[in-house]
Simulated assay, not measured.
Amino acid sequence: MTQVTMTVNGKSVSGEVEGRTLLSAFLREGLVLTGTHVGCDTAQCGACVVHVDGRAVKSCNVFAADLEGAKVTTIEGMANADGSLSAIQKAFQDHHGLQCGFCTPGMVMSAAALLAENPKPSEAEIRHYLEGNICRCTGYHNIVKAVLAASGQDAGRMAAE
């Protein structure tokens, strides 16, 4: 067992983990932050995306013990300080960028990372950036609209599918 200490959603946390404990398991089971979903355990679906030191990372593909001192943000940490939805979360709600909601935390986290890198992405850039996130319900159209809206662009300019 290894002791690991990191900052998660702005709070210092620590715990004992086995060397093989994935970040997704540490977050969900150790810290009871269940917004990070695990869909595949093979880094294929993107449902488990979190931010580690500001970068989007698939948490089912990273060992918790390797993140000593890291700053991790999960979907629970995306809300505004007053508990209201962030601009990205609100855009997903307003533009129906979710159906069952299973992929939504990973999509929101990936979208936030994209907008941090590129505040005004094109539709093609959004689709390319989200290629590592799988949604089985929405067909992506409304997800792309939500990201455009969160970036302050006119989501209504997208052609209907």
Rank of each mutant, 00 (worst) to 15 (best):
T21P: 06
E125L: 14
K11T: 14
G101D: 13
K145L: 09
Y129G: 14
N61S: 04
D66H: 11
P119G: 07
N118C: 14
D66Q: 04
G15W: 09
I143K: 13
G156D: 03
G106C: 12
Q93H: 08
P121M: 03
A113E: 13
D41L: 00
G46I: 00
I88W: 15
L115A: 11
E161R: 08
A79H: 12
A111P: 15
Q44G: 09
A56Q: 00
M107V: 02
E16C: 10
S84D: 12
G35K: 01
Y140Q: 06
R136H: 08
A79D: 07
L115S: 08
L67H: 01
V72Q: 15
A149V: 14
N142D: 06
G39Y: 14
L22M: 11
Y129M: 15
R55N: 09
C137N: 08
T5D: 04
A159M: 14
L114Q: 07
L98V: 14
N142G: 06
C103N: 14
H37V: 01
I126A: 06
R28S: 02
G19S: 03
Y129P: 03
G106D: 06
I143F: 06
T73A: 12
M1A: 08
A116M: 02
L148F: 14
C135P: 15
D154E: 04
E117I: 04
Y140M: 00
T7C: 08
L130C: 00
N80W: 06
A70N: 11
A64V: 07
A159W: 05
V57S: 05
S86C: 05
D154G: 03
D41A: 02
T138V: 12
K71H: 13
A155R: 08
S110M: 03
G106F: 11
V4Q: 14
A43E: 00
C48D: 15
E117Y: 08
N61E: 05
C48H: 02
Q93T: 03
I75Q: 10
